[in-house]
């Protein structure tokens, strides 16, 4: 008996169904090829800093009450004169602002000062990388002092009637000058009797400021704290708070900047977790001034530089934060009970 030839599957399916199947297979291949999603790298491959940047509203003790927009490139340094005038330095200029942030004058300078102070008589001191320039109150250059060498990197100047203290991050010293530009002494030598090993300055953040009674405080950033030194250099007292929590100074080298309020409390800025806080004279945290969100610096950007370029306290005891990328000064005042969220 002759058998009927067996029909293969191709013979049993209609041509139209074949066409549909072919299109479906091609579409599937295209979809797989173009939408292959690599799995997200797991947590062990990533460092997430967000949990450290969260600030509870109950810990925020200040609120922003003004924002002074600056017509200035690369704003880099801030100072408040005894007269109340606010000085801001940036690329090729020093701006003078009134208490409402209106520009009242502008002095041309060559370059971008890294640091600035205003003497009680209105003379202006600028840190120009490795040397100081002294201007009169009208902005005229009076003198350029001898430079601090190749390594010199001036990050802060604090000036009173007789002395100018210049923090040099490159050489890890604070130089004390008179107004003639003469070096009176150098601060930063090891003094093991007072357990002082010198200033530890891993990055170009090294600040100095006077408190409300005229005492000189210098940040020791690698030790995460503040030190009160005599003008001749001896260490009088110190406090250090290394740690990642809100009450401490985070990272390798903080605080980056300091400024004192009239009640003796100290305003501190940090990088890494970009934030500004205030500590009471007994070193306890009063509260947060500006959070990473306020500074538009969520701490996960590829930047090892602080958005906060300088800090100051004005004659109304308001906190002024110079935020470089914003080209603005943010003004903060204490929250009142009504400001606090329930």
């Amino acid at each position: 008996m002759q058998q009927e030839p067996t029909k293969g599957i191709s013979g049993r399916l209609p041509a139209r169904l074949w066409a549909v199947l072919t299109v479906a297979v091609v579409a599937l291949v295209v979809v797989i090829a173009t939408t292959e999603k690599r799995t997200e790298p797991g947590a062990s491959y990533k460092l997430d800093l967000k949990p450290f940047t969260k600030v509870d509203d109950k810990d925020v003790a200040f609120r922003q009450t003004a924002r002074f927009a600056l017509n200035l490139d690369d704003p880099s340094a801030l100072a408040v004169a005894d007269s109340g005038t606010v000085y801001v330095a940036g690329k090729d200029a020093v701006l003078l602002l009134d208490a409402e942030g209106h520009e009242t004058a502008r002095h041309a300078v060559k370059g971008t000062p890294d640091a600035m102070a205003v003497a009680p008589d209105g003379r202006i001191l600028l840190g120009m990388r490795n040397h100081v320039e002294l201007l009169d109150a009208t902005g005229k250059l009076l003198a350029a002092w001898k430079d601090l060498g190749e390594r010199g990197y001036i990050t802060s100047i604090a000036a009173n009637a007789d002395n100018v203290f210049v923090a040099d991050a490159g050489n890890r010293v604070v130089m004390r000058y008179d107004y003639g530009g003469n070096v009176l002494n150098e601060m930063g030598q090891r003094d093991l009797k007072r357990e002082f090993e010198g200033f530890v300055v891993p990055s170009p953040y090294f600040d100095a400021a006077f408190d409300q009674s005229g005492e000189l405080w210098i940040v020791n950033p690698g030790r995460h704290g503040l030190e009160n030194h005599r003008p001749t250099g001896e260490l009088v007292s110190s406090w250090y708070k290394p740690g990642m929590d809100l009450y401490s100074f985070c990272g390798c080298c903080n605080p980056t900047h300091i400024a004192f309020r009239s009640d003796g409390s100290v305003v501190t800025a940090e990088k890494g977790i970009n934030r500004v806080k205030v500590y009471a004279p007994d070193n306890t945290l009063i509260g947060v001034v500006a959070t990473p969100d306020d500074l538009h610096a969520p701490s996960d950007e590829n930047d090892s530089h602080s958005p906060v370029k300088d800090l100051a306290v004005d004659k109304k005891d308001r906190i002024l934060i110079l935020v470089g990328p914003m080209k603005a000064i943010l003004v903060y005042e204490p929250k009142t009970p009504g400001d606090r969220k329930p």
Binding site: Y45, K46, L47, P202, G272, I273, S299, D300, S304
Partner: peptide, 17 residues
């Protein structure tokens, strides 16, 4: 080193990069 970059991120955020 597997090139994960965790140390790089920590150094960028808190150190000198």
């Amino acid at each position: 080193c597997i090139g994960c970059g965790k140390c790089v991120k920590g150094c960028n955020a808190f150190g000198n990069g």
